[in-house]
Write a protein that binds this DNA or RNA. Sequence first.
DNA 1: CTAACTCCCTGATAGC
DNA 2: TGCTATCAGGGAGTTA
Length: 273
Amino acid sequence: MPELPEAESIRRALDRVLPKRSITKVEIFSPAMREPLTPLLAAGLEGRVLGSVRRRGRYLAVALDDSRALLMHFGMSGIVRVEPPGTPKRKHEHAFLHLSGNLIFKFECARRFSILKVCTPGPDGWPPELAGLGVEPLTEGFNAEFLFQASRGRKTCVKNFIMDNRIVTGIGNIYATETLFAAGVSPLREADSLTRSECRNIVDRSKEILLRAIELGGSSISDFLNVDGTEGKFAQELSVYGKSGHPCPRCGTVLETVRLGGRSSCYCSGCQK
DNA sequence: CTAACTCCCTGATAGC
DNA sequence: TGCTATCAGGGAGTTA
């Protein structure tokens, strides 16, 4: 499912193909989504020229030439493709944006958790609905002291804490699971119990893992595909995610799974304290 | 304020 | 074979 590295892979791909193309026609096939797609029809998109593609957490924003932007989020199963006409329509394709240069931007989502909407960015360059997002994990702002201070007084477990988008944005179940394994920290630990040193470890490992995943085009777990239809290759480097019952790659202890905040979490009780 | 729920949705898989 | 139950889960919303 798309987390930050997958969103960044999509961003890079879209940023190579979308800018300077104009929207020639909008087609909506499935109005009933997490947010309705029908407003796209009345948004006056025909004739608008697309600009650069930026990312905030797992959201992407494609600039429009009228100071608005197309905002998208991939939920769990969102896929976007840019293809020439002629490909048969797939079952869960919900919207097409026809583009100049004989291409179609296709918005697909089996579970309908994705978002595609027009937004109006504020002074910070992002629409108000993204105002509550926390720090970007690949910036200087995400550092040991930040994580340490943010976790003081927090009784929630460390896994839920680093998956909280209001604290740090873009880290979902896969990368939280892998980060805590690499950092040797149990997902069950109270956030408040983290030492500065453990915070530094979590921050450093998460950045390494996210950067490596971006390098490999993300993880294709279940539904994720890149814009060109290829799979990300990071899934092959996962140490513990989805490997419950397998031996720990570091110490051989059988990996356990617990449910935290409604999400399954795989970890090694031998390596993660 | 925090923490712990519920819900949205479909497809894959397990069990009977 | 065909049914039902369970799980996958981001984020918004609700409750205590």
